[in-house]
Design a protein around this nucleic acid. Structure first.
Lengths: 194, 194, 194, 194
DNA sequence: CATGAATGAGCCTTCATTCAT
DNA sequence: TATGAATGAAGGCTCATTCAT
């Protein structure tokens, strides 16, 4: 159903719209959560509701695709980061900072509850999160075995903690959000040091 | 209208209902946010919607009272904590851990957005938050001047960070929530050390 | 859930509304089928949509109660009719004519498809239709054993045939509908004679 | 616009599509009524919606053509039947049985309401139905004057009765539908005997 | 010309709030 | 006074119709 897992090929304009919707919906979900009005989700992507529903049969499916897209990008980044950093600790820091990007952190924060509730019913999502978590945990283990990171917390929990602090705070302007998130991650990185 | 600001004294049973509602609503708001259905807010408090509306003219007012009640308890605790701890740092740790209590942390997490949006229109709320923040900041300053705490982050931000990580995660059972929150606060406390 | 099978007793006005809704909805369903807009179903009963939904959680449930109510009345009538008529054939004619009443025949015509699709999932409905059909079939058998009725058609089919010809024809005014239905039933009664 | 009333001659493939659509739409209308989704009407005919709309400007026009086509076939059959049967009664039985064919009876059943509502606004349809009814009524009169048929019901009403009992019952499989319809018509034929 | 995408109006359902008991 | 019923406005989803490919 996703563009990469098959399903019938879409017409060029339809595929373009699909991408715009995933991007636009991701943006609004970051700000207002996965319950944002469908009408606004459509508007933000510059399409009508009808188009939204033609591409994604219901809200659940839309949110799912946004989540899948997010995890794909996260996995890509993780792969790169790990390859580029010789030390576990520096790879970990790199990954955590990557989670500070709004497109990842704010979104994963907004989706945390939704994912907890729906991940188990969805094989592809389960697979992707497992892959992402696997990358993250192996970096955590490496950092821990280097003696660089505390050992009383594991990868899952670090990820949860990060998704909490990277939540977008709609009351602050975008710039303040980025700065605050960065500062919070600094604190957490220091707090994780062994 | 609030009992302390001098609305008309309520009949004993009415006052009892008022308290039950504030407690019950706080509990549900922690779990489902300030948009929880009024009907459920009433149920959780063991009253009918009619009673809820008789005591609080609309949702805004109910949430406000829940917030006011929370800040009162926070201020009390802060006063005690500060008095009992000679060192700034230990008082700070004490306050932060106090924020781990669900009745404070999970609630303030759930109310963060609401407060940001409405605090400014409400003198009493402004006063209370200012008091609470004042206590907290003075402890932070003291800890910083002791050299025990990093200086690149201030009290407001620490509070925001705490309200983020103390959010209730409805996908986890109550016990797991408490433990996770405690662990996150440990990480943060270590991250704040100077 | 139905008023007779229990559920918590409703307040007097609520129970009155419940009855008005079942009556009003039955009327509109006769004319426009079980897909009639909920708004109009409410209007026809003189209540708002909200009230409709408070009493019946969704369309399915509303239609179901209308159907249950119809079968109750049919069973009552059948019992009476059978008791009053010594001959199987005359009891049968009596029952068939009873099905000409719009509150029964037009409604059962409008509900035929719906019932076929949902009866099996609903024990009470299954029971009621079985009872009604039982009464009808025993009258049919009696008439057949008297030699008064043809034997190449059974009770179920006669009922289906009746529900077809008693369908309301919205293009005709009410009076014409009644007359036409009566005439069609005359033809069928004559056609059923042995 | 209709092929016989002299719209512009269509290209061969376009005309072929036109016929496929009329056939396919007739089939689906029999099963789901004249409100069946346009998308499904197109699918059933093996074309896209666009093509459907190119051939028929809106739903009304499509249904109309399906109705016109049905009446043409009915008139043809009536002419043949009447010519072949010397007796009025046997011609009538022949016509009634012809109405048992799904392509006529089930369709006319499904279209009954639609026709009642729209026939008067459409000269060609009025003409065709008048012709068909004329044939039918003359057969009815002949049968009545032979003393073979009851006289308390006229041609229009017999046709209405037939269109009621020949309605498709989607809850039954195709074969059961045919058999049930045949049996119902037997009953009615016997009921019409003088 | 044939197709299938895009649009927006309409109906279903929920829920904040008001009102009758 | 406490309750739960009634209301209507708001948001989800479907589908008739129009338009780009």
């Amino acid at each position: 159903m996703t563009s990469t897992t098959g399903g019938p090929r879409l017409r060029a304009d339809a595929e373009r719209n699909r991408q715009r919707i995933i991007a636009g919906a991701g943006e609004l979900i970051r700000e207002r959560g996965p319950d944002a009005p469908m009408e606004e989700l459509a508007q933000r992507s510059g399409v009508g509701v009808g188009t939204l529903y033609r591409r994604f049969p219901d809200r659940h499916r839309l949110v799912r695709e946004v989540a899948v897209d997010m995890f794909r990008r996260a996995v890509d980044a993780a792969t790169t980061a790990v390859a580029a950093q010789p030390q576990g600790w520096s790879a970990l820091v790199c990954l955590i900072r990557f989670c500070g990007e709004p497109e990842i952190g704010a979104l994963s924060g907004a989706l945390r509850g939704w994912l907890a509730e729906h991940r188990d019913d969805d094989a592809e999502l389960r697979g992707l999160t497992a892959t992402w978590l696997g990358h993250f945990e192996s970096v955590v283990h490496k950092a821990q075995s280097e003696g660089a990171m505390r050992t009383d917390i594991d990868g899952v929990e670090v990820l949860r903690l990060i998704s909490l602090v990277t939540c977008r705070m709609p009351e602050l302007p975008a710039k303040a959000n980025r700065e605050a998130t960065a500062r919070y991650l600094d604190v957490i990185i220091d707090g994780l040091r062994g």
